[in-house]
Design a protein around this nucleic acid. Structure first.
Lengths: 414, 414
DNA sequence: AGGCTTTATTTCGAGCCTCGAAAAAAATAA
DNA sequence: TTATTTTTTTCGAGGCTCGAAATAAAGCCT
């Protein structure tokens, strides 16, 4: 039910806003903050001195940024790196990466383990995850301020509370309650997030102009994933985690998908689907478990070299993506799209078909106006997004705590 | 940019909340309001007495609701009908309806005009609209408090500012700046809204339990429309007005749609499409301009009577709707669906195919859990939603005015 | 060098707002 | 009539933000 604003919420929200402004702007002055937040200078001054007193923010004696202007120079304010740390864990196919990050976002330590996720027993997988978390938290205890938050990014579907991995394509196990497990072991709050959503979070921080209120991050790799930002918030469903774009139906009764259904977008645009078509295998043949990036690069080269089944395979992939995007654009309006992952390196082979397909759909009027960006390194984006998600949780929940904060309701404001 | 909460926002927001609580609850007591809003009794008391003093609310001396409990009886608070009025205009195929509504939501006067929207010249259409508005506003001036808001609901696409009708299937004219026109003529603030969105607003008010945070209102008539409520807000695109569900692509390159494209959901599920299939006309034949409801009822009867092209036509419509809904459910999670409009009276003929199609899509795990309601009277819903939209604008903008209100940003909180 | 100008930040009192406790009001029960 | 119960109002207290004024810290100018 609608809830009123209580008097003590006021300060809390404004504190959160000041912290947020500093995180976004990097090293703003008090005057700058007052400008962006529409609060008075006196208020900003009061809140800033509180936060500095608490060790959340620090004044930056930046001699280098010597103002060339007249007048008292502005004092830059920055996040205090020693205010706390967070741990970001990324679990993806055959690899597990953990990173310890200070409050200002700098990496303190990082560690990667490789193992076959597809065959690793359930308890070993959980054990590996727990161990990497433990090592990082331990390291935090020795060398750095305490760990205040852990976020796991996993390819797959999580529950709406971001506590349990319900299903993942990278392993046979289901319903792993990572949040409870790790919280139990460490006493640190944990959430489990979808990898594509973290990509979107990262893009939003990296390119604040282009990716702000509405955009799409599309992961093109073995499978197809989507992170959707609407009105400045990562869109997560009410029961589960993310936009299952890859499993929208492109052609009813069509090609066999990894998920067992037929005609999904992924069954045309995933690596395995492109490979299957390039090999002239029937559309209902069982999807391959994994196609090496090198093999896909080879197919792309062949497709670029001349017409043939390879080129046709990429064209079909483009058409599936285009019709899928067209459906998304029919519901919202066209928005910028970031193509992420190794599959995006073949974007040149798909762009024509994508635009052609979009042009045939309701959102198609602006087909040419839609901009696509390419970023083939999905891991970096996921890691960064994961870290930002953890840090903004600390911003909102720890340093500006309160009952009705958005993060507490599971919303991700990126 | 993120904006801070200023001190004066506080009162304004809490005022808006009290007004909203009264509108939702009907005749709550102060204690009841305090309960739902989490504000203290003293605050509610203060705000309520302000609003009563301003004539926005009134105490209801309801002798009938005599409390059977001990203790001082609660005094019911209600919206003051005489606090103001609004005008709701619904423009749909061949009919124009205007309604004058008092602040408590009671209809004071209503008027309907019939003319052929498909052929009426642009200026005549505008003239008719202006005339009906003028008559109602004039009537308001004589018998009732002043008109504070006008909302038009039109089948079609509006701009994101809700000021201009960009395109509508019920008439050949485009880009009619209704808001500017009517504001210029009356001096009363105006918005132009999509009819399906108003259906959703109305459903949200009528069935507060079932339709609250996430649901879909699907208009089944000559065309197919959708009103989408996500997180308690009617979802409107960034550039235009509504979810173009009817023009999501069901089968790439498929049946000819009224919009000129091929394979849209509407090209299978709109009345004209069902009729075309029932008549065994080719899928690429030109859509009929209008199919009378009686004719559709006749087809439905035939379909119920036994197998044949009619039954097959409804089955195809169901499949298209089902796959479309499946795509929507792939992006969000499954949500309750209200089937609205005359087409919904044949829901029994489509339900099987709808559920079957949904079961083949990503959201399909819960296919059986998805509940469908039927409401064949779309006009009533549109009218009501339109009125509520206008009234809540008055609640938020006039009686609790401020710069950063959600309504001012074009959001519809229903 | 020293005063002037400009810009940033802090200080301070005023004005609101919400809250909790206590008082007042209005009914029923005994 | 008195006690009890429940609702509503009243009344400081404490907080918060705001605007104005004061203070701080530079560059500019003579």
């Amino acid at each position: 039910m609608t809830v009123g604003i209580r008097h003590d919420d006021l300060r809390r929200r404004n504190r959160a806003m000041v912290i947020g402004a500093v995180r976004r702007a990097g090293q703003p002055s008090r005057t700058e903050i007052a400008g962006t937040t529409a609060l008075s200078h006196s208020t900003i001054s009061a809140i800033a001195s509180d936060l500095i007193g608490e060790g959340v923010l620090v004044e930056q004696k930046s001699v280098e940024a010597a103002a060339l202007k007249r007048g008292r120079p502005q004092v830059a304010i920055a996040l205090n790196p020693r205010a706390g740390t967070v741990v970001a864990i990324v679990l993806s196919l055959n690899s597990l990466t953990g990173t310890l990050i200070d409050y200002s976002g700098q990496t303190i330590a990082s560690e990667t383990r490789r193992f076959a996720t597809q065959v690793l027993p359930r308890n070993d997988l959980i054990g590996e995850t727990l161990a990497i978390v433990r090592r990082l938290v331990e390291r935090g205890r020795d060398e750095a301020p305490r760990v205040m938050r852990i976020v796991l990014a996993i390819q797959g579907i999580t529950d709406s509370g971001a506590r349990t991995l319900l299903w993942s394509p990278i392993m046979p196990h289901t319903d792993i309650g990572f949040a409870d497990l790790l919280e139990g072991a460490t006493g640190i709050p944990v959430t489990v997030e979808n990898d594509c959503n973290m990509m979107a979070v990262s893009l939003r921080w990296r390119h604040q102009r282009r990716y702000r209120d509405n955009f799409i991050a599309l992961l093109l790799s073995h499978g197809i994933g989507m992170g959707l930002v609407l009105r400045g918030e990562v869109f997560t469903g009410t029961r589960s985690s993310g936009a299952e774009f890859g499993h929208m139906i492109h052609r009813p009764g069509g090609a066999l998908c990894r998920c067992g259904r037929q005609g999904c977008v992924e069954a045309y645009a995933g690596s395995y689907a492109i490979w299957r078509n390039a090999m002239r295998l029937p559309e209902d043949s069982q999807p391959a478990a994994d196609i090496p990036d090198e093999e896909m690069a080879r197919l792309a080269e062949k497709a670029r070299a001349g017409d043939g089944p390879e080129r046709e395979a990429f064209r079909k992939a483009g058409a599936a993506l285009g019709f899928g995007l067209g459906s998304v654009f029919a519901l919202f309006d066209p928005a910028p799209v970031a193509m992420v992952g190794h599959g995006a390196s073949a974007f040149d082979l798909m762009e024509g078909a994508i635009r052609e397909a979009i042009a045939q759909t309701a959102g198609g009027q602006h087909s040419n106006a839609i901009s696509f960006d390419i970023d083939t390194d999905e891991m970096r984006l996921i890691r960064e997004g994961c870290a930002m998600r953890a840090l903004t949780f600390v911003d909102d929940e720890i340093f500006a705590p309160g009952s009705d904060s958005q993060a507490a309701q599971g919303r991700i404001v990126a």
